[in-house]
């Protein structure tokens, strides 16, 4: 895709970061407010689509690294599976970190309250893991679809020359 005009690119440079902040907020606050790993990951992956539309494909392909995205995706899925497997002494996907203290283990007061950020055990950890997987996976879909389409268009032009 060709880059759009200077106005669109400037607006993209300023406001695209707020999409990343908002998506990260949805992922991190998944156990307190509506949303979670999947929803926040979709919002962050829209950032890549926005960059592709505003700055054009040639510059985007210079910025992103597919190997890094692929590694992040696999890492997210492995963290998710590992967090499920560590509770196997009780059941699969048992919440073994809840109310144990530490980073994820605060106790929340009962009744309606504003919420404690470092509570909820493996739920917050799984939100982060699924968020990483969805961000990398959906970005990878967009980047590879664009590369495949470009390959197709190039070959069409070559075949027209013949």
């Amino acid at each position: 895709m060709n880059p759009l005009s200077l106005i669109v690119r400037t607006v993209c440079n300023v406001f695209a970061w707020f999409m990343v902040i908002f998506g990260a907020y949805i992922i991190v606050h998944g156990h307190l407010s509506p949303g979670g790993g999947f929803q926040g990951g979709a919002v962050v992956a829209t950032f890549i689509a926005f960059l592709l539309v505003a700055h054009g494909g040639k510059r985007l392909l210079g910025w992103v690294k597919e190997g890094l995205f692929s590694a992040v995706e696999s890492t997210g899925l492995l963290i998710f599976l590992g967090a499920g497997l560590f509770g196997i002494s009780t059941t699969f996907f048992y919440n073994f970190l809840a109310k144990k203290g530490g980073l994820f283990g605060s106790v929340v007061p009962l009744g309606s309250n504003t919420g404690v950020l470092n509570s909820s055990g493996t739920i917050a950890l799984m939100n982060l893991a699924v968020g990483l997987e969805v961000v990398a996976g959906l970005s990878l879909i967009i980047v590879y679809m664009f590369k495949g389409i470009r390959l197709e268009l190039d070959r069409e032009e070559e075949s027209h020359d013949r």
Partner: peptide
């Protein structure tokens, strides 16, 4: 009380 989470949907 079981899972120490406020958002029941996420739990």
């Amino acid at each position: 009380e079981e899972r120490a989470v406020n958002n029941v949907v996420t739990s």
